[in-house]
Simulated assay, not measured.
Amino acid sequence: MKAPSTRRQRGVAAIELALIMLFFTGLLPVVLLCGRALFAYTALQKSAHDAARYMATLPLPQMMNLASAAEGSVVVRQMVSDAMQDTWPEMETLRITVECVYADDAYQCGSYASRPLQVRLKLTIDMPVRFLPTLLAKWLPQMSKIALRANATLRYDN
């Protein structure tokens, strides 16, 4: 048998490269989306921890007063919103729950007459996915947004 020519081998290699590049080019947006979602989740988790640390270090008289604790919750919400706007400006819905954990259950901070044991923050945010083609978005409507959730529970120190 005759050995194939090098010119013919180069042509086959070019076709193989073109097919592989087509596959990886189609896969690239998925990799970028996963990276962006991981970046947003990391920022969300860090902001949740920072906000919980802020609430966990409020002085006890403020934490036992409903109005002062509500002001602290407003500051926490603003901290998280600012951090997420820096990370992903198109973030849609931000749900923040701030609770103080007491011996028997968790309540709104400031609504219980004793010192809380822990401060708990629960965050949920919707990360929109807008770069998918409209045809793919019709096939996968659940990919229109990605729900990111973060929780932070810290011991109350004061």
Rank of each mutant, 00 (worst) to 15 (best):
K2W: 13
S5W: 10
S5P: 07
T6Y: 11
V12M: 14
A14F: 09
A14H: 08
E16Y: 07
L19V: 13
M21L: 15
F23N: 05
F23E: 05
L27E: 09
L28H: 08
L28Y: 13
L28W: 11
V31A: 15
R36I: 01
R36V: 01
Y41K: 13
T42W: 03
A43H: 03
L44Y: 03
A48H: 00
A56H: 05
M63R: 14
M63S: 14
M63C: 13
A70I: 06
E71S: 15
G72C: 12
G72I: 12
V75M: 05
V75S: 05
S81N: 12
S81E: 13
M84Y: 04
T87A: 14
W88T: 05
E90R: 08
M91A: 04
E92T: 06
T93V: 08
I96F: 02
T97N: 03
T97H: 00
E99G: 04
Y102F: 14
A103W: 05
A103G: 09
D105R: 11
Q108L: 11
Q108W: 03
C109Y: 07
Y112S: 05
R115T: 14
V119C: 05
L123P: 00
I125W: 03
F131Y: 05
L135F: 01
L135N: 02
K138T: 00
K145P: 00
A147I: 10
R149T: 09
N151K: 04
D157H: 07
N158L: 09
